[in-house]
């Protein structure tokens, strides 16, 4: 069972307390009704599914109930870092080369 650090509780807690909520940093358009079919397709259906570093949303369901963002390595399953919802995508990751 993984340990995940909730950036709001500032604690590492077991995976059981959390729910994954899909890929992060996919912004909903401010002009949703005006989106083209192609843009809506990209927004709603297309996901990156990387081998390696993924940016994703988690919710501390059985804790503070907040949504937050996490950087996880899909190869090792290791959480690289977590950060609060609304914070920008980190440009530098701790312990990751390049």
């Amino acid at each position: 069972m993984l340990l995940i650090r909730c950036p709001y509780c500032e604690e590492e807690r077991p995976e059981l307390e959390f729910r994954n909520a899909g890929e992060a940093h996919i912004a909903r358009s401010a002009n949703m009704a005006g989106e083209s079919d192609d843009d809506f397709e990209k927004f709603f259906f297309i996901r990156s599914n990387p081998k390696g570093i993924i940016y994703e949303r988690w919710r501390h369901m059985h804790g503070c109930a907040r949504f937050f963002n996490a950087v996880r390595d899909t190869v090792t399953d290791r959480f690289v870092m977590t950060y609060k919802a609304g914070e920008p995508k980190p440009s530098k990751l701790p312990g990751v080369g390049k």
Binding site: R19, A21, R28, R57, R59, M61, A65, R66, F67, A85, G86
Partner: peptide, 13 residues
């Protein structure tokens, strides 16, 4: 409830 919280916390904060 989850759906509402999701939008309130992340899209319409």
């Amino acid at each position: 409830m989850n759906h509402m919280e999701d939008y309130l916390q992340t899209e319409f904060p």
